[in-house]
Amino acid sequence: MSTETLEQEVVVKEPAEPLLSKRRKKFITDPLNEDNPITIQVLGICSALAVTVKMEPTLVMSISVVFVIVFSNLIISLIRNLVPNRVRIIVQLAIIATLVTLVSEVLKAYYYDMYKVLGAFVGLIITNCIVMGRLEAFAMGNKPYDSILDGLGSGFGYAWIILAVAFFRELFGSGSVFDFKVFEAIGLNVTNNGLMVDSIGAFMVLGIIIWVQRTKNGYVEHS
């Protein structure tokens, strides 16, 4: 009895947490570097690499993924106490699939060229492990606002890695950035590397990014 009243008093006294407290800032900054979903957690590589031939589709893909992660995190977090544990995977899949359908229909309506380029890979956001992973690991047990921040963090952590991969692949594969011919503009004659346009280039570039980032952070994987 006495402990209960004590706890209540503590809750009343505690001031409201600021919108961007230290704890909450960590939700956003951690996935960018130390706990990156791609390079450290090894999630979401599936649909990430296929779209990184050029910067533009990669940017669209990143925005779509950030949108899907943030909103699925929010929705799951709102209904987390209503969902029975046994059917949660199906519920999560249904919500993700609905959001992805939304993204795909918007792209089809306003940005048809990009819809054609991305093709099946928009649909494959459904099975992007980052989205499922964040729902399972975070949104199922945390408040809505925290879940939104966590979604933003993971989304940006994913986005900057695939944008970096796309930058190198487009620069050396097509000699351009956002379709702007960089090498021609500064008068250099650089031959395009066909390997970069190919899937093999994506593996190599990501491998190098992982190497650099892990060496910088001193992270070692023990197998």
Binding site: I200, G201, F203, I210, W211, V212, Q213, H222
Partner: peptide, 19 residues
Amino acid sequence: PDGLKGLGITMFITGLMGI
């Protein structure tokens, strides 16, 4: 090398297998 252990070296191997 330490930084390449696990995922890093696996990406390179996958690339070579792709070739």
